[in-house]
Amino acid sequence: MWSPEDTYAIARIDLPQAGTHGWQVRMQRRGVKYGKFFADGLHGGVPQSYQAALNWRDELVTRLAEEENAARICRRSPRNSSGVVGVSKVRVTAANGTGYWFWQATWCPAPGERRCVKFSVKRHGEKQAFRLAVEARKSGTGGL
């Protein structure tokens, strides 16, 4: 009657002793639980209550996806000061105690592998070192 894709997060509830018949939508995202029951009697029968549950579930999935996408686009992590994922400014201290600033690009070319390349602020200047790090991160290569 209904395929598994159609019933994602939707379960049929039939409890004749309690007079409860309908569809239950239950879902959890990021630790928040969502749920709603759609009684057959209030919606005009089994097909109508199922359709109401399906519509509510689809609207919820769409809304949660939009919120997740907006959160990823609009909010910058407090741990990321460059504004570009995988690009950070690092300070390396030489053996003699002198500190040098670099823009560093980090990426994973394969599972379990990590690569990084640094571009000297002293050699390239602040803006150019940053641009080189961003480009290296995008291309996933050491670049130069």
Rank of each mutant, 00 (worst) to 15 (best):
D58N: 10
D58V: 08
D58I: 13
D58F: 06
D58T: 12
E59C: 06
E59I: 05
L60Y: 01
L60F: 02
V61I: 15
V61W: 03
T62L: 03
T62W: 01
R63P: 03
R63A: 08
R63I: 02
R63H: 08
L64M: 08
L64Y: 15
A65S: 15
A65Q: 15
A65K: 10
E66M: 06
E67K: 12
E67A: 03
E67Q: 08
E68S: 06
E68P: 00
A70N: 14
A70C: 11
A70F: 02
A70D: 10
A70Q: 05
A71Y: 02
A71E: 09
A71N: 11
A71V: 00
I73W: 03
I73S: 09
I73T: 13
C74Y: 08
C74I: 05
R75G: 15
R75Y: 15
R75T: 12
R76D: 04
R76C: 03
R76Q: 04
R76S: 15
S77L: 04
S77I: 02
P78G: 02
P78E: 13
R79K: 09
R79W: 11
R79C: 13
R79M: 12
N80W: 07
N80T: 14
S82M: 02
S82E: 02
V84R: 01
V84W: 02
V84S: 02
V85S: 13
V85A: 06
V85F: 15
G86V: 00
V87L: 05
V87K: 00
V87W: 00
V87Q: 00
S88P: 00
S88V: 09
S88G: 05
S88T: 08
K89Y: 12
V90Y: 10
V90P: 00
R91G: 09
R91N: 02
R91P: 10
R91E: 08
V92D: 09
A94C: 14
A94Q: 09
A95C: 06
A95Y: 06
A95K: 07
N96Y: 02
N96C: 04
G97E: 04
G97K: 05
G97M: 03
T98I: 14
T98L: 05
G99Y: 11
G99N: 15
Y100R: 03
Y100V: 01
Y100F: 04
